[in-house]
Design a protein around this nucleic acid. Sequence first.
DNA 1: CTGTTAGCGCTTTCAT
DNA 2: ATGAAAGCGCTAACAG
Lengths: 318, 318
Amino acid sequence: MSTINDVSRLAGVSKATVSRVLSGSRGVKEASRQAVLKAAEELKYRPNVIAQSLLSQSTGCIGVICAQDNINQSTGYLYALEKHLSQHQKHLLLRFANNKGEVMQALEELTCGLCDDVLIIGARFELNISDENIILVDCMDGDTGNSIQFDHAFAAETACNFLIKQGRRQIALINPEHAGGVEPVLLGYKRALENNFLPFNRNLIFTDASSSSVALQVLLNNSTTLNFNALLVADELEAQRAITQLQAFNKSVPDDIMVFSLAGSLNLPGIPTIPAIEYSMDAMAARIVAWLNQKTHSVLGSYVLRGDLIIPDMSGRK
Amino acid sequence: MSTINDVSRLAGVSKATVSRVLSGSRGVKEASRQAVLKAAEELKYRPNVIAQSLLSQSTGCIGVICAQDNINQSTGYLYALEKHLSQHQKHLLLRFANNKGEVMQALEELTCGLCDDVLIIGARFELNISDENIILVDCMDGDTGNSIQFDHAFAAETACNFLIKQGRRQIALINPEHAGGVEPVLLGYKRALENNFLPFNRNLIFTDASSSSVALQVLLNNSTTLNFNALLVADELEAQRAITQLQAFNKSVPDDIMVFSLAGSLNLPGIPTIPAIEYSMDAMAARIVAWLNQKTHSVLGSYVLRGDLIIPDMSGRK
DNA sequence: CTGTTAGCGCTTTCAT
DNA sequence: ATGAAAGCGCTAACAG
């Protein structure tokens, strides 16, 4: 690779002039400008970004540590993020991490000058990070430092209101191992019930970390005495699992039981779509990039993103 | 961030000694060693990798341009790749690209000193790249430059042999828009038929780029005169689409028609798994990393990876 | 064993 | 308008 020295020599000017032409380009005689341009062209010269980085103390690289277990959802994040980042001349440095140790190791390796900022996405374990230029996205500890959180209470409330309006008044809730814990989800759930003057039935709620299929089985086993006609689950994978299990017990979905995903929905041919809350990855990415671009980082604090209610088209249903 | 100067000052030694302690660490008096270590610890000093990169002319970054349209499969690639790369102190710089223009732009932005090498994955369009340190993975033009290709002929032959042994002798083939074109697939298909003394029926083959659902419909419309009891499709998404369509026409899968995916299979609860060829992302990643690690790049040429035959467990089937 | 020096490729004063 | 020189943070020769 040719360097700025080669260009300056060939063009018969100094390094400084070459630099001026290729960057600011102001206050340079047209003749020299042309000479530089020609020389650069001839040598296929491209400024070395590493040297520039050393000087500017910034690389344009954003580290993204993906701690999501739902690998399916990760791709959505990554695609949206990369699109937005590259539009702003930023690069996405990808790492996957499955536990706190791996996250910390990745952090260690990314924050030695390589990355200007780091994003941690979807961690379902405590992190206790306070670093100013690390953003937590959909992570467990959103209270500390900068973060983008999903409004799980809003999601649950929306879900319940929708289900209730559909005539589903017995809504079961299974194992929502959401970022901010179970509380927000329960909060939204209860709020919707209250607003609709519906009683709260503790037996329909399964919030412990144990297997969600066991939880559903408990519901099914008790279904003679404990009625439910709707089921709230954490995400599209949980939904798919639940639907399979329900159908194995001759429960029709959604006729007998309407399954609602609190985060995303599977969109595959041959698989009936279900109502769900979906978070706009694009909106999230835009938000993140906006934050990265303003130098005075500390202002974000915690930003809460609300999801859209997605209603499947039921017109074709028998 | 503190620099090597801060450390040397605090430790009362020269930069060189600090560098020696933190890298090679040989031929340094124990006293100075301790002083340096203590000072570094105190200042939380971490060598700036950008400065190191400028000197060594290598960043440890590997650009990965993901041109795959099956976003589902991309994640598999990325995860495996990242795991292997990070084990070798390399970083994955991610870009998505949907056409030649975007690929070229990404290439432009990554090869200015930022990345030591670049991978292009899953491009289904001509690229014409000859650069020594760009690897094409599962791309269309695998003949030029370094590349890792999937053995599609082997996959098709394996698939057909499996199907024939299962008693399926009328095997339809739809629209395999594979990396190396359709030829290898057809080659493998024909080879298997020949080896089993079966006739080749041109009417069962649909290789034009038009809609695969139209192709399947043609097959279904002609199914009174043109029998087929197996169907080869390009990937798991095509398979899912095909299965849905078949079932809508009262064809049972796999009883009436066995669908076989030539690349990967969906693995979701409630969805019957189908026989498929699956390429080990781990093997591929290992191969790539091995190649990246040997400095004398040019030796790879073209490497061909064969996929595994995955047979679904049919014991529980009624 | 350790400090001094040079230099990786670039940008940016500061003179001229 | 432009060149010389300094310096970003680091490592590697070269002396001592």
